Simulated scan of single mutants.
Amino acid sequence: MFEISPEILPFLVLFSLGIALFHTLILSGIFNVNLKPSWLMFIIDPVILILAYLFVPKESGIIFIGLFVSVFIMAIIGFIKNGIESTIESFREQRKNKTPVWKIIGGAFLALFAYLIFFYLGIYSFFIIFFLIILSSLLPNNKNRFYFYQRTLPTSTIKSIAMGLAEISGKAKAIETVISPDTDTPCVGYIYTVDEISTSRDDDGRTSTSYHEISRKTEIKNFHIEDETGKIEIIPDKLQWLNFSATNSREDLGRRYREFIIDEKTDFLLIGQAFYEGSKSVFRFDENKNVFGIAPLDIVNFSNKWRPLKLRALTTLSFIAIFSAFILFTPIRMVGNKIIIEQKNWKETFQSNPFDWFIKK
């Protein structure tokens, strides 16, 4: 057993505060969990370590290692979650844009290929998955393009907007009001989704719930965005709704019904193309930059506030992961007070399946 000594406990408590920082960044930045209070993990992690030291001293070191490893597990789960969400979004875009069937089938074959690689490479495939998830988060998609241009474009006032790619913000005003189907709310536009609810129970009696979207309806007509200088008409064809929270959600008879609404009270930020149409200016999808999105302004500001910390955290996690991988895969043995690092036969390692030891058991 790995027991924490009294001399090293204060150091590990301070180290647990660093772990709490990563837990906070991952929960808020990747999982979008609103921690209340925001410093909650800075209490939970040190308390777990201290309680382990007091009540299970012989296992206290193992619990500390568990806290440390949980950072990587949470980060990997978060990346996988974002990767799955990005894949679902891409699939919806393909269906909406009537992507050729051969491309969708090709994507399915790639998924099958990845499945086979997992069984051939075993645990080493997690490193490939980790790399591909990070790479996919950097590749262009609607959300990435929106936030890329949002960080580089200045916010234009509507009165002085220049033609071409632009960023504007203001309140939405309906030209023709639409009515949401579930709550009969007058609004500028809505997305109405129906999810099928699946409930499962594990061997310990814990219940988990998952949701599978079975229908989606969007209704939005031309509308205006107004700021203190004027207004401009928005043509909502191909408009992507980003970071919207459900304004209404209810569950009934094994299904969940949700509404996402563009109202006339919230400030929104839009990125698209300002274009002369006849004698007036309109705002529409930019075919050259392939971007046209709308997001609540407070969510965009929150994302910009946390982005530097998120990037630092991901960079640090990457270095820690590389260093940890080096330690895990490098043969090390102790001879007296000396640590001897042996040469690793990487060719033999990657030719063998690391799950073999488990299968033999």
Rank of each mutant, 00 (worst) to 15 (best):
F2N: 07
L14H: 06
L17Y: 11
L21M: 13
F22N: 00
I26R: 00
L27N: 05
L27T: 06
I30G: 02
F31K: 06
V33G: 02
N34W: 10
N34G: 13
F42A: 00
I44S: 00
I48C: 01
I50P: 00
L54R: 15
F55L: 13
S60I: 01
G61M: 05
I63S: 01
F64G: 01
F64E: 02
I65K: 10
L67V: 02
S70Y: 03
A75I: 00
I76T: 11
F79R: 02
I84G: 06
I84H: 12
I88H: 05
F91E: 09
E93D: 15
Q94T: 05
R95E: 07
P100M: 12
W102N: 12
I104Q: 15
G107N: 11
F109N: 07
A111K: 09
L112C: 10
L112T: 11
I117G: 06
Y124I: 00
Y124L: 03
S125W: 06
S125F: 09
I133Q: 06
I133M: 15
I134L: 13
I134H: 03
I134F: 08
S137W: 02
N141I: 04
N141T: 07
N144P: 03
R145E: 10
Y147N: 08
F148A: 12
Y149W: 15
T157R: 15
T157E: 15
K159G: 05
A162E: 09
I168R: 01
G170W: 01
I179Q: 07
S180M: 00
D182V: 10
P186E: 10
G189D: 01
G189P: 00
I191C: 11
Y192S: 14
T193V: 12
V194D: 02
E196T: 05
S198Q: 12
S200N: 13
D203P: 01
R206H: 08
E213C: 14
I214W: 10
I214H: 12
E219C: 04
F223M: 06
H224P: 00
E226T: 10
G230Y: 02
I235P: 01
I235C: 09
I235K: 13
W241Y: 14
S245A: 12
A246H: 04
G254V: 06
Y257R: 04
E264W: 02
F268H: 03
L270F: 04
I271T: 01
Q273H: 10
S279G: 10
K280R: 14
S281W: 02
S281Q: 15
F283T: 02
K289D: 11
V291S: 01
G293K: 02
G293V: 05
P296E: 10
D298E: 13
I299F: 03
N301R: 15
F302L: 10
S303L: 09
S303C: 05
P308N: 13
L309T: 03
L311E: 13
A313T: 15
A313V: 11
I320S: 05
A321E: 02
I322D: 06
I322Q: 08
I327R: 11
I332F: 10
I339M: 14
I339A: 08
I340S: 05
I340L: 14
I340E: 14
E342P: 03
E342G: 07
K344D: 06
K347Q: 09
K347C: 03
F350L: 11
Q351W: 09
F358G: 02
I359D: 07
K361I: 04
